[in-house]
Amino acid sequence: MLQLLHFAVLWLYLLLPSMLCGNLFCYFSHILEVEKPYELIVTECPPNTLCFKADGRYANKSSLSARGCMAKEDCSQVHTINLYGIVHTMSYGCCDSPYCNSCPGVTANSLCITVTLTTVAVMTGSW
């Protein structure tokens, strides 16, 4: 019976992320100056893309921010962007769990882990 439980946990652990993150939900906000108020709206990423949070820098200061979905291979790139005639340097941080791009630096797929652990705890408890 214990083996069956282990199998179930393993199965849940493997399957849940794909159930939750098949179509990855991320926050979206268009490129905007950091001092301006932004509104986060939810976007659903196409397959093979991750959530990102972009950080634009100008004169050694954080100047722009943006959120959304992007292809995994583009996450590491750095490029410049011209906004109102000012050239900002953009860099990206990607994460692969739902809504993981709400705050800067959040990269762990915490929701998936939390959901999995909760499920396991509930199942163990009811057993």
């Binding site: 179509n23 976007t43 659903e44 196409p46 979905c69």
Partner: peptide, 23 residues
């Protein structure tokens, strides 16, 4: 304004994958 653009784009569905892809 950005809030108007957000409202405009809220329901943009990518037909190929049937996802509400605001980006």
């Amino acid at each position: 304004d950005i809030s108007v653009r957000n409202r405009l784009c809220w329901g943009h569905v990518l037909t190929e994958h049937n996802v509400r892809y605001v980006d």
